[in-house]
Nucleic acid binder design. Structure first.
Ligand code: ZN
Ligand code: ZN
Ligand code: ZN
Ligand code: ZN
Lengths: 159, 159
DNA sequence: TACCTAATTGAGACTCAGTCTCAACTATTG
DNA sequence: CAATAGTTGAGACTGAGTCTCAATTAGGTA
């Protein structure tokens, strides 16, 4: 079964009213791995320019609430969305030069996270874990030519 | 020696021109643990209203480039800055209910990060690692009364 | 099927955080 | 102290996202 059909079923089960606009937004979103809200706006408007920007943002929020999409901040530009519905948990590794994103799993980190929150008496609800670096290709090109904007400087410098 | 004197020395060593405005911004920034750009603007203007917003943002960018401050995204509101100059590396744990931020160290996670990037042939430059949960106190209050806005919903749900 | 009603939509005004521009000013060098 | 390259203040501007509200529509009900 197509992925968007499952999402629509989930929404219906949650009592969410389905409209043509929402169906289109869902169909376009599942076509991507990672996308920004404005990218989705342009994409959806390419299929139906009459769909308002506000509707697309509202639908995205709806999908977020329904647990269908997650919001990522990769420190460069606006947040990135990902349809994680029926997808195993993973963290991300990004090349700061070319922007390539790799999804990885490392259960031992997740175990340590539990140990950390226990140390402080917290109850863990969620986490973000993102690694930034240079992919094999970009390690061999002139480091001077940085293609990503200056805000993408290191947040936490690795010693 | 006062912390801001060391920062000023570092800037001078980097050939950065010191002005009264920049000195004030540095002195106010080191007074905080974590702060947003607009908080710093209000604070600095409290001491000298003639300092322009643009100057404060420019100085913040300068300090960022010089490795004096780091930028954090805690998924709620605008980014958070932290003067990490001469401070040991740490990650963050935040209570999604009351906003408390705890700084923690977990070297075993950093080791695993190296293993992950090696797996993909990457060269690690930096990372973000943030845990979100409920502090001891907030675990015992009515979960219905959520004080943080809806955008602070989970990004990566822990299984 | 037709109707009803609450939910949703489109359009555009609006907000907020941050950036840019440029003439006036100033820290540093010699 | 003069020269000059870097910095500043003020405000216009931008991008991304939110809000408002009259018009439209989904989905339940008769
Ligand atoms: Zn994870
Ligand atoms: Zn992903
Ligand atoms: Zn760390
Ligand atoms: Zn910190």
């Amino acid at each position: 079964m197509k992925r968007f059909v499952e999402v629509e079923q989930l929404l219906r089960a949650k009592g969410v009213r389905l409209t043509d606009q929402r169906r289109l937004v869902v169909r376009r979103a599942v076509a991507y791995l990672h996308f920004t809200a404005e990218e989705l706006v342009r994409d959806v408007k390419g299929f139906d320019p009459s769909v308002a920007r506000g509707t697309i943002y509202r639908t995205l929020a709806l999908l977020h609430q329904a647990g269908v999409v997650e919001k990522h901040d990769f420190r460069y530009g606006p947040p990135n969305y990902e349809v994680t519905f029926a997808k195993a948990h993973h963290d991300h590794l990004m090349c700061v030069q070319c922007g390539e994103i790799i999804e990885f799993q490392e259960p031992r980190v997740e175990t340590l996270q539990q140990a950390v929150v226990k140390r402080y008496g917290y109850q863990l609800l969620s986490h973000t874990h993102k690694l930034y670096g240079l992919c094999r290709t970009c390690q061999h090109v002139d480091r001077k030519r940085v293609s990503l904007p200056p805000t993408l400087h290191v947040e936490e410098v690795v010693a």
